[in-house]
């Protein structure tokens, strides 16, 4: 192995197998390993030569969903322990956010935005990035007024205040899209009071820890996600030993 003495090879192989949680597997054949273990062996083979940079190209695409989540945590943990600069290519946006310090979103061969997961999710520079990273509502509207970075937009039959990434490029009357994440929309029974918008629930899907809603609001369809705190949620007041009641959403 790269002109490394045999004794050192044995030592390094032992170290790297321990690092990926496969100590004692030296004598196993590939067919005796699970999918996750085979992936760890591939990782061990890459890091045993002590590279300065690691490139992962869709490393988890062949694994089932549960194992993918487990392996991405292991890869992230290992990368931090080894402190190796790592380039990780994936089409899975959640995976990208889970393993990265910085993300570059590419479209047609060009980087269209680069930044932290929070930057990309909360401050997308384009509709492409907004739609590519997570779920989003893109609500059609027209600029009513611009004051610095603050923009007032006529949309959904009312005016809505928002931030603009490039407010100086906008003028009253310009067609725009409001970017609203599904979890940033609150809903309550009834409707229309206190300046809130009125909508109708057209679909409700219970997904365990969250409930997804599709709403019809002033001719637009809005995706809404509300998280259910569940029966084990902490009581709102510290001195209260038991929650008396909990309203279901």
């Amino acid at each position: 192995m790269r002109k490394v003495p045999a004794a050192e090879v044995r030592q390094r192989v032992g170290e790297v197998l321990a690092l990926v949680g496969l100590a004692g597997y030296e004598g196993q054949f590939s067919g005796q390993l699970s999918g996750g273990e085979q992936q760890r062996v591939a990782l061990a083979r890459a890091i045993v030569i002590r590279p300065r940079v690691l490139l992962f190209d869709e490393p988890l695409s062949n694994l089932d969903a549960k194992l993918r989540v487990q392996m991405r945590h292991e890869i992230r943990d290992l990368q931090r322990r080894l402190a190796i600069t790592t380039v990780y290519v994936t089409h899975d946006q959640e995976e990208a956010m889970a393993v990265s310090d910085r993300i570059a979103v590419m479209n047609e061969g060009s980087v269209v935005q680069e930044g932290s997961a929070e930057d990309l999710y909360h401050r997308p520079a384009s509709q492409f990035v907004a739609q590519f990273v997570g779920r989003v509502n893109l609500v059609a509207g027209r600029v009513a007024a611009v004051a610095g970075d603050a923009v007032t937009v006529a949309a959904l039959g009312t005016t809505i205040g928002a931030r603009a990434v490039r407010a100086r490029d906008l003028a009253p009357g310009d067609p725009v899209r409001l970017v609203v994440r599904p979890e940033s929309i609150a809903i309550a029974a009834g409707g229309g009071a206190d300046g809130s918008l009125q909508a109708t629930v057209i679909a409700r899907t219970f997904l365990g820890e969250k409930i997804e809603y599709l709403l019809r609001c002033a001719g637009e369809t809005l995706q809404v996600v509300r998280y259910d705190a569940g029966p084990g949620a902490p009581c709102p007041k510290a001195r209260t030993s038991r929650c008396a009641s909990r309203k279901m959403p």
Binding site: S126, A164, S196, L197, A199, T200
Partner: peptide, 30 residues
Amino acid sequence: MPEGSNVAVRFAEDAVTVLPEVAAEGTSDA
């Protein structure tokens, strides 16, 4: 909130971003 019911909708403060309208945008290419 059951299907068919009327609801009041509010956007969280500082959670709305404005982007210019574009005619068409491409597809992903990692």
